[in-house]
Design a protein around this nucleic acid. Sequence first.
RNA 1: GCGGUCUUAGUCCAGCUUGGUUAGGACACCAGGUUCCCAACCUGACGACCCGGGUUCAAAUCCCGGAGACCGCACCA
Length: 584
Amino acid sequence: MEETSKLGKFTAINEIARRRGFFWNSYEIYGGAGGFVAYGPLGTRLKQNIENKLRDIFVKQVGILEMESSVITPGKVFEASGHVANFKEPMVECIKCNKRFRADHLLEEHAKISSATAEKMSLDEIKFAIDENGIRCPDCGGNFNPPQQFLTMFVTTIGPYAGATGYGRPEAAQGIFVEFNRLFAVAREKLPFGVIQIGHALRNEISPRQGLIRLREFTICDLEFFFDPEKPCCHLLKDVENEVLPILLGETRLKNSEETIKVTVHEALDRKIVRSEWQAFFMAMAKRLLVEIGVPEEKQRFIEKLPWEKAHYSSQSFDQEVLLDRYGWTEVSGHAYRTDYDLSSHMKASGADMRVFKEYDTPVETEQVIVKPLMAKLGPVFKKESAKVGELISKVDPQIIRVAFEKHGYYMAGNYKILPEHVEICSQKIVERGKRFIPHVVEPSFGSDRLFYVALEYAYSIKDDRVVMKFPPCIAPTQIGVYPLMSKDGLDTKALELQKRLTREGFTVEYDETGSIGRRYARADEAGIPLGITVDYDTLRDETVTIRDRDSWRQVRSPIKDLPQLMHLYFQGKINFENLGKLV
RNA sequence: GCGGUCUUAGUCCAGCUUGGUUAGGACACCAGGUUCCCAACCUGACGACCCGGGUUCAAAUCCCGGAGACCGCACCA
């Protein structure tokens, strides 16, 4: 019974999404293709509004820099990042029944090989281990074909001739890391700073079945926040330290429990539940974002990833989950502490120096004993070789030379005999003004399509057998509906004027004069339009209109001239519906 | 990838067992009428058998293959 109601809501949301143009499966005329969706007019606006909300929070409020890079990425990038090695699954297929299995999972189960070890094994090693342990198909007992890797990145060729491999990026993060040097320069070479990229990513999922939750092409919002690991303090923590985070700890999960603990950001850090201040800060901001798109906090939680669940780059990871009617607890954002993994990898692979220079508060002065070759003396003796000899000498530990002089009266640098008069051993002051290091990264990463689906599901409600999409006003795809009570007697022209005026004010306004007023309200409710303004016969007399609240269906009356200001205040969340006019 | 169920207008469904003239309904949408605040009513218009092949005089209907959806399994770095 519960099952059918779950199906019912999901089906109803999908039906309304198709009918009203929120989203649908792509390529329907060719039979469809799994894992790809098209957003219609309402959906596109809703998705943009959600993404803009995210921008509002992170770009405007926190000061994160936004950038945009390409989807197609040269192979080298994902080789360096570790994706080519890690973004694939070794799979075996049963010869008899054709069933496929994760080879590493079979080894864990039947050969007691740990997942960490199994992950590092080559295909040959896997084959050997399978044969050695006599592992057969768990279903029918058949033998396996040789193991094969299934790469979950889309592969392509860049340019028409060369065999230059390119990948469709499976995340937007690498687009940020590879441009780090320029971004850092733009950020005026100051840490900490963050960069966000919102864009498409591609993952060739084996079986993308869960609608908007798992797509082959989707929109990802990756935020990479760079900071000095020696200065891990978050200067914005004050704003969020009392925000409560519901966390399901890894240790709790190991006990097969789903009990969450509720801790403030402050506590979570104090008790070292979350190890990075910045990570805790972003988790709190992520929670706020979800509240703003309509998910109450009791329907959210953060779940700590277990060591073998973490991505290859991550040190400590949490997933932000939202309770969905259909899919249960569902990930909407991931919070990973990527350390210096990515920048180090790209540094090593590309040869580019991605270190950051940090000036010490007070320069460090050290005295160092050095061997100074006296070229005036060396020249006459070694002639053309003297430059080489000089270089050789200066690399040697002064102590060794000193000891050699004391013992033998000379020092042999290779085949060259160095006498005390050739060099000067002296102490030198060295002033270090700073040092170079690789910044650490904390990454919150949101799935835009998932946020979208979450917003739809939480907005969906039924009132008097009608569907009302209760989007929070700040993300509603259409903000205002304008209706003439009758499409005659000049009410229509008056209403059209009003629509134009509000549109010029920057609102998304829809005009509708077809059908009875009740039908138009119903249509508007389904599209989730928060406010409906109706021009009636009183309007012609006194220049006032009624404003209808989507959620309560109550109405207030206000003068037309006040509308622009009232609407601005309402959509900025500064006033409530009741403050829009006199209740009628 | 596997197994089960399924695929008919914008949406939701009927028809298929037993092949046969013009594939039926509801809602939505559009036009006109009517209507002074919550999917009212009247008239009219538009609009579909998932794709490919086969069987047959004749296929939405039977058979084979494919694609897609849903449920379960597996997968989800």
